[in-house]
Design a protein around this nucleic acid. Structure first.
Length: 573
DNA sequence: GCCGTTTTCGGCCCGACTGTTTTCAGTCG
């Protein structure tokens, strides 16, 4: 079993203990252990076989036994017992913002509420406000929270959907009659949130392909099954649609099912102007289907050049294509530096050395270490003394490395007044600063905008981190005027990060054209808290492509020396 | 449950914020 799966089960135990246990530190112990596993640089099987589990910090005798049971049997007695004793509806209730384990328990005890539905009813009837420790405002807040949850229901982050989609695709391609199979829909377009998975396959025997598709291990239920289209529900509730067409129809089908609807509408308009007709089966002149080599042929015939899937949102990509002004989009291989990385000096799971090694293994040429600053005490923010110690450690490692460099950075909190989180002489010690908001989220828009702009004005600020603070499907952005922020960033020469964590993907791609217009550069940053977290860069690259960024717009495409020069230029100027 | 030790218990990240209280509990980051 993979360590991420074991970690997920430890997390589930922690969730359940949160409700059941009297000791609040018990669930935390399981969470810490889960994070330690995720941050483990080696194979879990090896560690287990050599009996070294117990030696990992955060894993004691009890959890070591738990892990060993999970790995060998696929489950554990404790997990089964906890699942049996805590109603699943209570766990769902914990997802309501503002409702934690204590309150959920109080509601279960006082009002026998054990589901989101019952909770909603009790709020609407006013019963919740009568419970000791609750009141009108809490009741309303819970109602608002339930409303928010239902507004995001049925939507999934890209990291929840993409691995499953790729597994389905892999499964499809193993079907003997399938000549081609591709991902389509919003996942292919690189959207940060999706409602379903769309797959297109070419085969002369669609019935056999549909049967094969239904045998995928992740399929939990069949919604509809036909000869051209089959819809299923996966084990995590996500819907997946498969369309099977003939080999000849495949290019048009792939184009059509990739969308977006708006893009396709405009594309059909262009076809019509040329006396052609485009649908999901072919591109026609009169009754005759034009021969299509691949999807790109369609765009070629329509005189648009190839429009990358990420750009197909029905904005101005068709006009740009017609004018021959489509950007050359950033490629993943363009990214050569790993910027915005946490280590166990603050809240990361891996050591500095492990993170450096992981970046080198992945072929990067430099890494920018950015642990949290001193105010972020919840995340183990670095005191000035620890900053100096970390710098000594970085110097030591750098002296041993050839052809690779570690840059000394910090993710500095932007304090409520817009200042950075150390005295100036401390800030001068860093090669670069990622400045981010981590507190006082509820400021009025004007104050928040002024606060962030003030942080940008500090000549030591190099990159603005996750500029809106949003957490996809769980927390809205704080109130901030991004137009003004981007303008200031452009004028001051501060890059605005695309935080590549699939939970954030912030800067939003919709702001890309505006950013480029204002001369703002970006940096594709994983905000990695473990070695595996570095691979989130792929999500950031997709978003950068959607935004329309080219290699020249992205600072961590620069080589070591050019990057060093770029981060130093504000301070010297 | 983990961990360190002036070891076998008593801490555990800690401060802001909110709403419910009337001095504090719960949640969040």
């Amino acid at each position: 079993m993979l360590k991420v799966q074991v970690a997920a089960q430890l997390e589930e135990i922690a969730d359940l203990l949160e409700i059941q246990s009297e000791n609040p530190f018990q669930p935390r112990a399981f969470r810490n252990a889960a994070r330690a596993l995720e941050g483990l640089a080696e194979d879990l099987e090896d560690v287990l076989a050599e009996g070294r589990l117990r030696g990992i910090p955060a894993i004691g005798d009890s959890i070591a036994n738990e892990i060993s049971e999970l790995v060998t049997t696929g489950g554990s007695k404790r997990l089964r017992e906890l699942r049996a004793s805590v109603p699943p509806g209570i766990l769902e209730m914990l997802r309501v913002p503002g409702l934690g384990p204590k309150k959920a328990r109080a509601l279960q005890k006082e009002l026998r509420i054990e589901s989101l539905e019952a909770l909603k009813k009790a709020c609407e009837s006013g019963a919740v406000a009568q419970v000791k420790g609750f009141g009108e405002k809490t009741q309303q807040k819970i109602l608002d929270g339930i409303e928010y949850l239902s507004s995001v229901a049925g939507r999934f982050r890209v990291d929840q959907a993409l691995p499953r989609a790729l597994a389905l695709l892999d499964h499809l391609r193993q079907c003997p009659g399938v000549t081609r199979a591709e991902l389509a829909g919003s996942l292919r377009r690189g959207k940060e949130i999706v409602k379903d998975i769309d797959l297109v396959a070419a085969s002369a025997d669609p019935v056999a392909v549909m049967d094969h598709f239904l045998r995928s291990p992740d399929v939990a239920g069949v919604v509809a099954k036909g000869e051209t289209k089959t819809s299923v529900r996966l084990s995590n509730g996500l819907a997946a649609d498969l369309r099977v067409v003939s080999r000849i129809e495949f290019p048009a089908a792939l184009q059509y099912f990739t969308g977006s609807k708006e893009h396709n509408t405009q594309l059909r308009g262009i076809a019509k102007e040329l006396g052609l007709k485009l649908n999901e089966y072919a591109l026609f002149r009169g009754e005759v289907a034009l021969p299509l080599r691949d999807e790109a042929s369609i765009y070629e015939i329509l005189g648009l050049g190839f429009i990358e899937p990420e750009l197909r949102e029905g904005l101005d990509e068709i006009r740009l294509g017609a004018e021959g002004r489509l950007p050359t989009l950033l490629e993943r291989s363009d990214i050569v530096g790993m910027i915005h990385v946490h280590t166990d000096w603050s809240d990361g799971a891996a050591t500095l050395e492990e993170m450096v090694e992981a970046a080198r293994e992945r072929g990067y040429r430099y890494i920018g270490i950015t642990d949290h600053s001193q105010s972020a005490s919840y995340a183990g923010g670095l005191t000035p003394e620890r900053v100096r110690k970390q710098h000594a450690e970085i110097d030591r490692l750098n002296s041993k490395l050839a052809g690779f460099r570690i840059f000394k950075g910090i993710e500095s909190d932007i304090l409520a007044d817009g200042s950075l989180d150390y005295e100036d002489d401390m800030l001068d010690l860093f090669d670069f600063v990622v400045a981010s908001v981590h507190s006082s989220f509820k400021m009025p828009q004007e104050a928040m905008t002024a606060r962030v702009i003030r942080a940008l004005q500090d000549p030591r600020t190099t990159i603005l981190g996750h500029p809106t603070g949003r957490l996809l499907l769980s927390r809205d952005a704080y109130a901030i005027d991004m137009g003004q922020v981007l303008k200031a960033a452009g004028e001051l020469g501060v890059a605005v990060e695309i935080n590549a964590s699939p939970y954030r993907l912030d800067l939003d791609w919709r702001l890309g054209p505006r950013a480029m217009e204002l001369g703002v550069k970006t940096s594709i940053n994983p905000d990695a808290h473990s070695t595996d977290g570095m691979d989130d860069v792929i999500h950031g690259v997709k978003i950068a492509r959607k935004a329309g960024f080219s290699r020249e717009d992205v600072v961590n495409t620069l080589g070591i020396e050019a990057f060093a020069k770029w981060i130093a230029r504000r301070k010297s100027g």
